[in-house]
Design a protein around this nucleic acid. Structure first.
Lengths: 185, 185
DNA sequence: CTAATCATGTAAGGCGTTACATGATTTT
DNA sequence: AAAATCATGTAACGCCTTACATGATTAG
């Protein structure tokens, strides 16, 4: 009963919205899923092969641009069932990895003013992300994707989360920068 | 010039606050660093060996409880320098992995009421975390760790971040749950 | 004519987890 | 007497990135 990896389910999520080649899945994975899940094509191709072997996807092969065949993948009924079941299964907690927080823990061992610049740069990045997310949210709001039932609701909901988090992180980074600036070491 | 991994720097951060055995580092890594960085002892022991080989830490060996020697590690001057330099170096962006957001993206393919329960359970977990963080923040505030210069400031600053994020995430989970409940599929 | 895009794969190596292995001391 | 804690390691395996490899079509 070959278990499917999270990446496998991510691909099933994408294929649920429409058939794609592996190449296309890599492109579609960049936005908006790339904000909370990423994978390179080198991971995607073998994973698609595993999903096909498990009977969760099928493909139609045609002639491709390169020396190999181009394969267009679709979810099978088993794939849709597996996806629906996975969606309502609580996720195992993942190990968090946040290098900026790790650095913050040891802030006493660093030069304050150089460290403050780090937080300002991070704040600027978050501000830029925030602008990106907000513009995408506007588009989705205009399209009426603010409720479940609308096909864009998944995107809308994740964007709302992203906006809330980026706001907090930007504010926290600015607070760190100003706190360090007020207190040179 | 053997490059040091993020885990290596995490260990240097801990050793900067006091010498430890590998076992003790694993324990100290659980809280509060465990909130934003984790590692098992199976990763820590080889990493300490690499740090020692690179001259960033030294150890004093004594007789241990088991068949092997117990080693107490300390940062060297080179280790402290490497740490100070790493702290002010911008981190390379990490690939985010958030299974709940991935599921949210595909929410249209799931049963609404079962999915709503998932968000409620997640919200409850965040509420519990929030209570934990708040109680620790109170202790640190009482200890006067609210400004840089105080040795507990690193903990204080990361807790403030954690509280802000957990609040947002809890609120977002509750919003998702109620939005799905209002709109059964 | 050059670069980008479309399209699919393999191989080597780092990071991280789980399971395996040993054995003294302290607590229940 | 049993369980937890202290203490250190190795081995196998999965996940993920970087580099390697091929070649047609389209846009500048």
């Amino acid at each position: 009963m070959s278990t499917v990896s999270a990446l496998g389910y991510a691909l099933l999520c994408l294929l649920d919205r429409g058939p794609s080649t592996g190449y296309d899945l890599a492109r579609r994975l960049r936005r908006p899923i790339g904000y909370y899940w990423t994978a390179r094509h080198t991971q995607i191709y073998p994973e698609l092969a595993r999903l096909a072997a498990a009977g969760l996807v099928t493909y139609q092969a045609g002639s491709g641009p390169g020396p190999r065949q181009k394969k267009t993948y679709t979810n099978t009924a088993a794939g849709r069932d597996a996806l629906a079941e996975w969606l309502v299964t609580p996720a195992a907690p993942r190990a968090p990895k946040d290098e900026l927080l790790l650095k913050t823990y040891a802030v006493a061992a660093a030069d304050s003013s150089r460290m403050a610049r780090l937080y300002l740069a991070a704040a600027a990045e978050h501000a830029q992300r925030l602008a990106e997310y907000r513009s995408q949210l506007t588009d989705l709001t205009d399209a009426g994707a603010t409720g479940p039932g609308h096909p864009g609701f998944g995107n809308y909901a994740t964007l709302r989360y992203g906006i809330a988090i980026e706001q907090q992180r930007e504010a926290w980074c600015r607070w760190m920068a100003s706190t360090l600036a007020d207190h040179p070491s």
